[in-house]
């Protein structure tokens, strides 16, 4: 049997294996992890013709440069990503949401995500990865998951277990849209903040700073003043929680967040807006908009329906 694998010529900035994440471990301190942008993860596997929870490669900003060794493999990239296939005949500019074929010696050069953060590479087949607690998702802080819990590194080999090739021409017409208004439900410590602080939170623009990663997104803007206490007794945190520490700058907890925290929670980003939130690169301006629980639940149903419709549109 021919061995199929990728050789990592350039690893990119934060390239990891991800799937849908791992459940039921918050109580021992392990976060959910998983692909940051759930919709683009699902679309990548759907276009590839894989099962929904198949491991993919997630990259941020600059992606990897990979050399393919083996017979032939199909793949696609989702997100808003610029990439080239470097073939013997010369380079071909790639489009997202479309399957391409790589042959022995071909290279895939994923230069960058455009005005966004995360992109996904799914092959029509499966990568050889380790699973921990039923998930390959890599948490580089706790060194849990595939690749010994580490980012993909230069010169390493990424082995491919099996390949299916019936979907070589599948594609989807889709353009990611950006959002500026992030909808939130008031947090359990909303009343810790002064009237001016609350007003700033919902009326002013905040800037996404460079100190943002898979753990959290740090924002900067008009200070959100605390009127009660800048600490709470440490308690559980979930994805999307917006904490405000003593300096008055909000931090949004993302997929690899610490499971326990001691800062007041001013709000929680609704599930329907999470995928688009994580795609906002440093420098983006955002504004928070308050909504109630029933509306958030409805918006999530709508978001799920949109994703399903996109899957149906893959041809």
């Amino acid at each position: 049997m021919i061995k199929n694998y990728f050789e990592v010529i350039r690893p990119g900035i934060n390239t990891t294996f991800q799937d849908l994440g791992r459940n039921n471990l918050y109580h021992i301190g392990i976060p959910f992890s998983g692909a940051m942008d759930n919709r683009n993860f699902i679309l990548a596997n759907s276009i590839a013709g894989n099962k929904e929870n198949t491991p993919v490669i997630e990259f941020a900003y600059q992606g990897p440069l990979l050399k393919f060794k083996g017979e032939k493999i199909n793949f696609n990239i989702t997100g808003n990503v610029s990439f080239n296939l470097i073939k013997k005949e010369g380079p071909i500019e790639g489009n997202c949401y479309q399957n391409y074929t790589l042959e022995e010696g071909d290279q895939l050069d994923i230069f960058s995500t455009n005005k966004s953060v995360y992109g996904y590479l799914a092959i029509c087949g499966t990568f050889e990865v380790q699973f921990q607690w039923n998930s390959c998702s890599t948490n580089t802080k706790a060194n849990v998951g595939a690749n010994n819990g580490k980012k993909i590194e230069k010169d390493q080999l990424i082995n491919i277990l099996d390949i299916h090739s019936e979907n070589s021409k599948r594609r989807l017409e889709y353009i990611n849209t950006k959002i500026e208004n992030i909808r939130v439900i008031k947090g359990t410590n909303f009343d810790y903040f002064s009237d001016k602080g609350k007003k700033n939170f919902f009326e002013k623009y905040f800037t996404v700073t460079k100190l943002s990663d898979r753990m959290g997104m740090r924002l900067e803007g008009d200070k959100i003043e605390n009127a009660v206490n800048t600490n709470i007794k440490s308690e559980g945190i979930i994805k999307g929680v917006i904490q405000v520490p003593a300096d008055g700058n909000p931090i949004i907890m993302l997929s690899d967040h610490g499971t326990i925290g001691g800062y007041p929670k001013i709000g929680v980003v609704i599930s329907a807006d999470y995928d688009k939130l994580v795609q906002l690169p440093p420098g983006s301006k955002i504004k928070f908009q308050e909504i109630e629980l029933p509306e958030a639940e409805m918006l999530f149903k709508l978001y799920q329906m949109e994703t399903k419709n996109l899957i149906l549109k893959i041809k």
């Binding site: 459940n23 918050y26 109580h27 440490s234 308690e235």
Partner: peptide
């Protein structure tokens, strides 16, 4: 239910 987080005096 996907996760339970007990702490000093709260359960999420």
């Amino acid at each position: 239910i996907t996760n339970l987080t007990p702490s000093y005096n709260k359960l999420i």
